[in-house]
Structure formats: structure tokens, C-alpha cells
Write a protein that binds this DNA or RNA. Structure first.
Lengths: 120, 120
DNA sequence: CGGGATCCTTCAGGATACTG
DNA sequence: CAGTATCCTGAAGGATCCCG
């Protein structure tokens, strides 16, 4: 048994940083929803059933601050705001999509996991 | 601008279930650490700097309950316990590794993100 | 050495109400 | 319609002590 040396997850290693991307509930979903183009706030909210307005805006603000999405305000009443991916934001679609695709190919396995879900 | 229809993240969709896999802090790291073969509890802990004994055991118990890892106890004093991936567990290495690999290829971008980290 | 059991802190994230 | 500001709680996860 050719036991290789195990990987050590130093606090600052990239694996940990990638994980942070997915450790927050809505981040990757918001990005992925914007893959189709620009969306208004309300449309975005309808893409994410269950999200609260608070978390939606908070997530959007963070993504904007990190330069992953662009926010466009139209000077109208009532207000109209649109969000779209920046070039950097578009880069993140790749791993997200990979993950989702893998999930679709292994939905049976996924469904069998209860992991940290108390009830099922 | 050929705006396609946005994806809707129904509560039970597979993307959400995959995300749950990565939403818990240590799960994917424990699995990945075991990629190299069987590891004793202490070795595992040394692979995950910062993990508490409580979280280590809790994560291991959950993974075991979901049939992703196998726990072997050697009748010795002092105790010796080893963990290894099951076949199902090995299946999860693929997406995890994809994610980590992508991270390594984009470490500069990742480093530029502050996301939800308060301080940097 | 491996691990169970407690206690305690933190904070992500939900609910609600109010503004322009 | 989009957004801000509060309030509140559930649960993740750390620290500690004890056991075989």
C-alpha cells in the first residue's frame, strides 16, 4: 500500500480560499444566475427562492466590492437597477458550473447524503 | 443582447445540495486529506491546522454515517484508529480536486477577494 | 491516543418595518 | 421597485474537562 504523504491545509492555502467562496450560502448562486446576462434586482430574487432581501443586497454589495459584479442604476421612478458579471466575475462561472454539473451527474449519491441536515 | 432565461434555484435542486457539501467548514478537507490512503486520527488532525478535536470527530462521524469514510479500530492500548475513503467517498474527490485545482490556477484572483472576511 | 460531554461565544442569516 | 436599519435566533464551532 503506497501511502503517499497527506496534503496539509495550511491556513492560507488556496484550497481554503476557494472553499470560502462556497461557504457563504448565496454567493455562487447569485453569480451563476447572472451568467445569463444582466438582471434586475427583482428578477434575481425570483431566481433564488427563499433568499431574503437583506441577504440578497448584502451578497450583491460584497460581490460588487470585490469587483465580481457591476451595478447599474437607471435614474427612474420607480427605481430600476441591473446587475451583471464583470470579467473577473465571469471567471468564477467555470468552477461553479463544474460543481453543479458534477452534482447533476451524481444526484443519486447526493440525495443519499444527509450530512449536516438534521431532518430530511 | 441575447439574454437567455436565468436559472432558478429551486430549494431541492442539485446545485443547492452540492453546495451543502462545501458549506461546512471541514468536510471536503477531511475527504481530500484521506485521498492519500488511510490515516490515523492524529495524522488527520495535523493535516488540518486549526481544527478542534470536537469538529474533527463530529465531521468524521457524519462522513461515516453517510458511508463516505470507513473507520477501523485496532484493539490496542493506547487506541489506534484509522480512517479511509469508501468507494462513495472516493467519488467526491473528483469535484473537490477540480475546485482546488481551479483555485491554484487562479490564486491571484482568489487572493484579491475579501468576500466575507472582515479583516485581511 | 482517541473521543465523549458541556458550556459558551459568535455570527450568518431570517423577519419586519420604514424610506424615497 | 430597490434599499437600509433593527431586532432576534439557531446553529456552527471553539475551549475545557473527563474517561478508557
Amino acid at each position: 500500500m503506497p501511502q503517499e504523504k497527506p496534503f496539509v491545509f495550511i491556513e492560507t492555502c488556496t484550497p481554503r480560499r476557494v472553499l470560502e467562496l462556497f461557504s457563504t450560502k448565496w454567493t455562487s448562486m447569485v453569480l451563476y444566475a447572472l451568467k445569463c446576462g444582466r438582471l434586475r434586482t427583482g428578477e434575481l430574487q425570483r431566481c433564488l427562492p427563499g433568499i431574503s432581501k437583506k441577504m440578497l443586497t448584502q451578497t450583491l454589495r460584497e460581490l460588487e466590492a470585490d469587483g465580481l459584479i457591476l451595478r447599474t442604476v437607471y435614474p427612474q421612478v420607480p427605481p430600476k437597477v441591473e446587475y451583471q458579471l464583470t470579467d473577473n466575475g465571469a471567471l468564477l462561472i467555470e468552477p461553479i458550473e463544474m460543481l453543479y454539473d458534477w452534482g447533476r451527474r451524481h444526484s443519486e449519491l447526493l440525495a443519499s447524503l444527509k450530512l449536516r441536515r438534521g431532518k430530511d
